[in-house]
Simulated scan of single mutants.
Amino acid sequence: MNKLITAFLCFFVIQINAQEETDTTTFDAESYQKTLDSINNSFTYQYGEVVLNNGLAILNVPKGFKFLDSQQSKRVLTDLWGNPPSEPLGLLFPEDMTPMHDEFTYAVEIEYADEGYIEDEDAEDLDYDDLLEEMQEDIKAANPQRTAQGYPTMELVGWASPPYYDQDNKKLHWAKELKFEDYDVNTLNYNIRVLGRNGYLNLNAIGEIDMLDTFNADRDNILHSVEFTPGNRYSDFNPDIDKVAAYGIGGLIAGKILAKAGFFAVILKFWKFIAIGAVALFSGFRKKLFGAGKEDA
Rank of each mutant, 00 (worst) to 15 (best):
D242G: 01
I241V: 14
D240M: 08
Y247W: 10
G248R: 05
A254N: 14
L252T: 07
F237H: 10
N232F: 06
P230L: 03
I257K: 04
K243E: 14
R233S: 02
I257C: 03
P239K: 13
Y234S: 02
D242P: 00
R233V: 00
G251H: 08
A246S: 12
P230C: 04
K256Y: 12
R233P: 00
I253G: 08
A261R: 15
I249D: 01
A246C: 02
K260H: 06
D240H: 12
K243H: 14
I249L: 00
K256C: 01
P230K: 07
A245S: 15
Y247Q: 09
G255R: 03
K256F: 11
G231V: 12
P239I: 08
G231S: 10
A246H: 06
K256H: 13
F237K: 10
I257H: 08
Y247M: 13
A261D: 13
I249C: 02
K256G: 13
I253K: 08
G250K: 12
I249S: 02
G231Q: 10
F237V: 09
L258W: 04
F237N: 06
A259D: 15
R233N: 03
F237R: 09
V244P: 03
A246P: 01
L252A: 07
I241L: 07
D236N: 15
I257Q: 09
L258R: 12
L258A: 14
F237E: 05
P230E: 05
P230D: 03
A246N: 11
F237S: 04
D242L: 06
K256I: 14
N232T: 00
V244Q: 04
L258T: 15
Y234M: 02
G255V: 07
A245K: 05
A245Y: 04
D240P: 04
Y247R: 10
K260Q: 11
I253T: 07
A245F: 07
K260T: 11
S235Q: 14
K256W: 10
I241P: 01
G255L: 06
A259G: 15
D236F: 06
I241S: 14
D236G: 11
K243I: 14
I257N: 05
R233Q: 15
